[in-house]
Design a protein around this nucleic acid. Structure first.
Lengths: 196, 196
DNA sequence: GACAAACTAGGACAATCGTCCTAGTTTCCC
DNA sequence: GGGAAACTAGGACGATTGTCCTAGTTTGTC
C-alpha cells in the first residue's frame, strides 16, 4: 500500500476533488496537478471524464458497502448500527460543514446536469437505504422499515445541507441529538413510531 | 406587465436557468438564447455573470419576502402559516422532483465553488428561518423557536434532495404527511416538543 | 428633424475545457 | 540485452467560456 498505482492515485484525487469542488468544476488539469502528473497521463488511464466519474462512484460504492459490512458484523445490535449511521454526521463534521454530504451533493449536481450517471450515483443512497431498512426490520419494524430508512436518509441529508450552508457545527450537533432522540422514541414505543 | 424590459426578461430567464441547470452550467449564450437576444445584449444589461447571480438572488429574496408577507397578513394563525410552508413541497413538487429545492441546490453549488455570493444566497434560508421562528414563537414556543425553524428547514431540505434524486412523488407526499404530524404533535403537546 | 442617449447585434479576444496524437521513457519478459 | 508493451509528458485540436469592443439601430427630447 506504500506504492499505489498511478491509476489508483488518479482515482483517489478525483474522488476528493469531485467532493470538494464538484464534478463539473473539476478539470482534467486539476486532477493531474493534484496527482503530480501530466494531463496526457490522466487521459491514458481514463479516456473520458465520465469514465473517471463512473470509477469514483464505484469506489464510493465499494467503500460504503465495506463500511456497512463492518458494522453489520461488529457485534452490536441493529439500534446501535443505526446510531453509527447517524454519527457519521459527527465523525465527518469538518468535511460536511465545508462541502456537504458526498452522496447528496453529487446526486444534486448530476440531476441538474441531467447526467446519465445519476442513476449510478443514486445507488449510493439505495445502498444506505436498504442497509438501514434491514436494521429497522431487525428492530421488529418490518412493515415500515423502508419508509423509516428513507426518512432517516432525508433527515441526515437536510442536516448536511444546512450545516454546509451556514458552517454551523452547533446546529449539526443539536440535530444529531434530535435524531438520536427520534430513534430512541421509535425503539421504545412502537405504537406511535410513524408519527414522530 | 405586458411589456417587461429586456433587463427584466434576462433576469427572469437567468432565474429559471440557474434553477434548472445550475449557475455554473448556465452560459451567457444560454440566457441570450432563452430571451431571444444576442449575447452582447446580455452583457450590456449585466456586465458580469456574478452581477446576474446577485440580481437573481435579490429577485428571489424579494419574492420570498412578498410570499411570507402575504401569509403573514392572510388571516390564518401561526400553525396554518407553518402548514403553508410545508405545503410548498406539494405545490412545487413537479419542479422539486426535477431540480430540487431552489434555495438548497444554489447554496450547495456556491459552497463548492467557494463563491462569495454564498452568504448572499444563504440569506434566503435566513429569511425563511426567521419567519418560521416568528410563527413558532407565536405558538408559545418562544425559547425553541429558532431551533424549531432550522429543524423544519433541514427536514424540508432533505425531502427535496431525495425527491429529486429518486424522482419519487410518493416519498415526497409521505414525508409531507409526517411533517404535518410532527407539527400537530408540537402544537398539541408542548411537553415533549423537542424530543420528536 | 437633429442629436444624444439608450439599446442591440455580433465579431474578437484570451483563457480554458475535454480529448486526441505523437514522441519519448520505463518496465517486463524471453 | 533486445523487443514489445506499458507508461509518461506535453503539444495540438476544436469547441466553449466570460468579457470586451465596435459598429449599427432605436428612442426620447429640444
Amino acid at each position: 500500500m506504500k506504492h499505489p498505482s498511478t491509476r489508483d492515485r488518479i482515482l483517489e484525487e478525483a474522488d476528493r476533488l469531485f467532493y470538494e469542488r464538484g464534478y463539473e468544476h473539476t478539470a482534467f488539469a486539476d486532477i493531474a496537478e493534484a496527482v503530480g502528473i501530466s494531463r496526457g497521463n490522466v487521459t491514458f488511464h481514463y479516456q473520458t471524464k465520465d469514465a473517471i466519474l463512473d470509477a469514483v462512484i464505484d469506489l464510493r460504492l465499494a467503500r460504503t458497502a465495506a463500511l456497512l459490512e463492518r458494522w453489520e458484523t461488529g457485534g452490536e445490535g441493529p439500534a446501535d448500527r443505526i446510531r453509527s449511521f447517524i454519527d457519521i454526521l459527527i465523525a465527518n463534521r469538518a468535511k460536511i460543514m465545508l462541502h456537504g454530504c458526498p452522496v447528496g451533493t453529487l446526486c444534486s449536481e448530476l440531476a441538474k446536469l441531467e447526467h446519465h450517471a445519476l442513476s449510478h450515483a443514486s445507488a449510493l443512497f439505495t445502498l444506505f437505504q436498504e442497509w438501514l431498512a434491514t436494521q429497522f426490520a431487525a428492530l421488529g419494524l418490518k412493515k415500515e422499515a423502508g419508509t423509516l430508512a428513507l426518512h432517516l436518509l432525508a433527515r441526515s441529508q437536510g442536516i448536511a445541507t444546512l450545516a454546509s450552508t451556514f458552517h454551523d457545527e452547533a446546529f449539526l450537533r443539536e440535530e444529531v441529538r434530535i435524531l438520536h432522540a427520534w430513534l430512541d422514541g421509535i425503539t421504545s414505543s412502537p405504537s406511535r413510531r410513524t408519527r414522530a
